[in-house]
Design a binder for these strands. Sequence first.
DNA 1: TACGATCCTATAACAGTGTTATAAGAACGA
DNA 2: TCGTTCTTATAACACTGTTATAGGATCGTA
Lengths: 225, 225
Amino acid sequence: MTSLDDKADTSAANRRDAQRAALLDAASEMLMRGGPDAISLRKLAARVGTSTMSVYTAFGGKEGLIAALFEEAFDRLADAEMAVARPAEPLLWLAELGRAYRRFAIENPSYYALMISVTMPVVETLRHDQPADNETPARHIPSHPSFQILIDAIEACIAEGSFPSGIDALVIADALWATTHGHCSLELAGFYASAETAEARFASASTAILKGFLTSKGLEKLRSL
Amino acid sequence: MTSLDDKADTSAANRRDAQRAALLDAASEMLMRGGPDAISLRKLAARVGTSTMSVYTAFGGKEGLIAALFEEAFDRLADAEMAVARPAEPLLWLAELGRAYRRFAIENPSYYALMISVTMPVVETLRHDQPADNETPARHIPSHPSFQILIDAIEACIAEGSFPSGIDALVIADALWATTHGHCSLELAGFYASAETAEARFASASTAILKGFLTSKGLEKLRSL
DNA sequence: TACGATCCTATAACAGTGTTATAAGAACGA
DNA sequence: TCGTTCTTATAACACTGTTATAGGATCGTA
């Protein structure tokens, strides 16, 4: 995994990147194993075969390391979302995206907990624009592919007539996200008695929040699926 | 605050309870100030004027202390829910409960973060029944007043005909909770640009998830409000 | 009231943690 | 090849939660 003594290009920049990747690999493994608190800089450095200082030069400290994992989590989610086959019906696409989101959350609980953690010090991580002076620091998720694909699906539904034509896709996206995330958060917290009821509740909530925005034409289309 | 040298009943049991309460008070203040990580047993003990050992005798350790705060958080939420005046229209009651929930989450962000934290080791805290052997450990929130009042409101809506008569109130309750909690979680995480858009999104999502379950009669009633 | 058992607590030590100063070393450009 | 710059290993600092221990206060009972 960390074979640094290759005869390949062993420039300093490459070795830095390799060690950075090795640190991230080991950190995400420790994250998946025992949650964010299980990431100890000493154990992490020992596993990679270096000292704790490399974490500071590569990431600026533990916060930076977690921030990097944060970005990786969103990238993984985006991969999971983009991996779903796009059906002909936009409403089906939307439903598939929701299921993929839940699947990701359940299969990567530590990463998901990281993404939604309030104490995340990476507010500016996902921003690609300059924040205004008097602006409340927001995370600007909309610029990320994992969110953009959701908006694409919603706009396809609007174009199809399943959602009202004048509506802002962001409003629907935020509502769908709130419901989906809320369910996953509760499920991961152990609030549901079994995985079966959790899945049933997810289906109920998903179709309900969807129906709340559908036009009569969209409702008909939903019934016919 | 911690006047232990009263001439009142100074039995050992009373002093124990008083110190327990003082510890909880100080801990919740530290919690509100800087989040769960800001609770240091040494600083906590110093503030109350005792040593760290009392935390172990009173709560069994830091986990027990956090668990006690966890229970207090749910009690506070229940108080906030029960404080809303019950309107004549059950649908309005439901809406008010949702707003009270969000208000609680925003005004007590640390407590709320505590309640929904995945790493909470207090799974059995809120249970009042014996878990079966092969049962997945669930939190059994439904037995708590803060959840029961939601179910009461939903059943009132069912009785009124706004929700389908055959439906399980728990299904609607879980869906409403998922949406409400999901929005609050995202809002506290800083995903919304401003408090205004956050409030607007909350209103949109709340009415949407509601409409998803309403009967045609309920939809009419909602329009007339 | 006096005694003995029980509980509680203050102190100190243990094993961790993230962070930082320092000094030695490696890699780089000139 | 020299000198600068960057990186790292070591050790120390200031913390954390937890625990063993010894002393003291409290309580039920004679």
